[in-house]
Design a protein around this nucleic acid. Structure first.
Lengths: 195, 195, 195, 195
DNA sequence: GGGTAATCGAGACGGTACGTCATGTCTTGTG
DNA sequence: CACAAGACATGACGTACCGTCTCGATTACCC
């Protein structure tokens, strides 16, 4: 019966230091070098303080990212009226992030942990991914032919992108982003079910 | 200058024992429990014999899978004339494999390692993934409207599937497989570019 | 900069267990079988705990012996007034110890390590040997003709003994001990410099 | 029943190369670095060739030394008529050798192995040590008072020397050598038994 | 002078132990 | 009681050598 710690007495200073240290280490040296001991040392914190509040390095990265996202406000998807242009913007941005080794390090970390633990995958999905996917889903509403699962529709945009990133099956360029948007939209467009 | 070992002197007995042990352990206990020491012990082999021929556990799993695939012959995609039916078959099969925790363990392993090492990702792509993707690409030829990158076309089928599997964004069922095929085909079909 | 561990936090339980395990193993199986892993296993201790406080197995044996010696109090050399009788006692005791394979195992260990590392030899000399030699040196005072280096005088007793033990050049018996004392005393006795 | 190899077919070239390599390695890097694999590599020889003819590295060093000694001819102890002067010569020479880290490395090796294996100690004694000690023993004959074991007499010269070398209990200088000879001779001189 | 049996260089093999690293838990003051 | 510090038991890492083994390729002796 390991009783839960008293959250009201938690040190904000330590919490922030840990999150900052984790982000700094992961961008400097990659996820492989991100050990609990390294975080503790860098943050000037005892290891126990980390284990008291997090289950592992994955959760720390997750929290750090969530913090960052919260600070930046909700993900904004422009609504210029031109659906294709708007989607190109987001897809291009995501592709650019994945193409950058430093920037994609956090995504790499979360993906690895998701593959390792189902409950972790659930957390990533609900806290990080869902909000992003939902903005696309909302923007798509009304432009999709009837009978199509909205979740599947969104996956049509992000799935190929992640697949290409993970398995390096091709270049991650703006042209690729545009072609992907083009293709996915063609699938969804009303009247596309029959040539 | 660590000179490479003499492959002609390699012990076939040990090679097979190691590959078998790795597969047995990964299906029994998962990738996390797959340590070099465990493989060595199970295979009745010295650790050095493993390190002599492989760089890490990822490569062993990769070789084991390649062996298996080679034994099973090239992946066969039926060509009944009905493209949609044929694709449903493969996509359903893949979805079923991903839905099974045991069967997907190897895919999980290869994905984690691909995210960890670029050169490993290249190997997975070339030795495992490419042959599979190419059968779809070939089958698709002639049924896709002009100007579409064939690789992107294939990714439209597999990307969403893997994304859903990794991040658990939805159920992996036959209905899902069919819907995915339906949607992807709609995107590719000649005349789909404009409603 | 490998900073030194905090000695005040050291676990007395582990320290003792390690020393005891080392002594038990060395008398049971000899110095060759005394591995760090065996000590750790026998003591129920992690290897790192050993490496944190000792440089190698030699130092452990040294500490164990020092502990034992400390517990037994300072080496007592009787002073009955009969110098020759007193010396026979110590030399006989030492010869008996060297003649016993079990008892001499520790001496063997310390000698091997002394031959391997100069700094180790210094430790053995200062912590173990010096006290023993000094009791002889003190007892000899006043019975030695002028101009003789006291250290050399003491070596005259112990040197031949160890030499015979190490290189097995002859039996280690009480007769030998007595003859050695006889001879060494003859060398030191006032008036011995000229026949 | 591991039948002994046929000595008549032995490769003289390999034998010499191994002995040379062992001596070179031991003087260059010390006994600790003298591994069978290093010798084999340096000598351009297969490991099996070493194991076929020797039991371990100690025996190789022993053979190498014996070879060297044989080449140099039997140890010569001068007989100028002045016993003390003659003994000073040998003792000084031995002390000088022990004082030199490079030169004493072989002695170190043989001593360590002697402490490890009784049968090895016997070999060292019979093949290396005895001839040296016997020259002293012979030279001493006639100058020693009755009733003294000649072997013990010799040990009086070499024992203290080795003891001081092994345990670093004092400097190994010419003055030391002379004082040792002086003292030992005093013990042996006829009429020394009673002041 | 060809057949054959051993030694030879080379190095892969199953092992053991090494010394290091990180894990997650526990312990010891300090604020 | 949270915290910084860090010792602890555990377990895997990747490396170094061990001593045995198997593989052609020279030998060198015998018929």
């Amino acid at each position: 019966m390991p009783k839960p710690p008293d959250a009201t007495r938690r040190s904000e200073r330590s919490r922030t230091a840990i999150l900052d240290a984790a982000l700094a280490l992961i961008t400097e040296s990659g996820y492989a070098a991100l050990t609990i001991e390294a975080i503790a040392a860098r943050a000037g914190v005892g290891k126990q303080t980390i284990y008291r509040w997090w289950k592992g390095r994955g959760e720390i990265v997750l929290d750090a990212l969530a913090e960052q996202v919260t600070a930046a406000g909700p993900p904004a998807l422009p609504d210029t009226g031109d659906l294709e242009a708007d989607l190109r913007l987001v897809v291009r941005a995501t592709v650019a992030e994945l193409a950058d080794p430093k920037l994609s390090e956090i995504t790499r970390a979360l993906t690895v942990e998701s593959l390792t633990s189902e409950s972790f995958a659930d957390q990533v999905r609900d806290r990080i991914l869902r909000p992003q996917l939902d903005t696309i889903k909302d923007r798509l509403r009304g432009h999709v032919r009837a009978g199509i699962d909205p979740d599947l529709a969104v996956e049509l945009f992000v799935g190929p992108m992640y697949h290409r990133w993970m398995l390096r099956t091709g270049p991650l360029t703006e042209e690729y982003a545009d072609a992907l948007v083009d293709l996915a939209l063609a699938a969804l467009r009303p009247g596309a079910d029959r040539g």
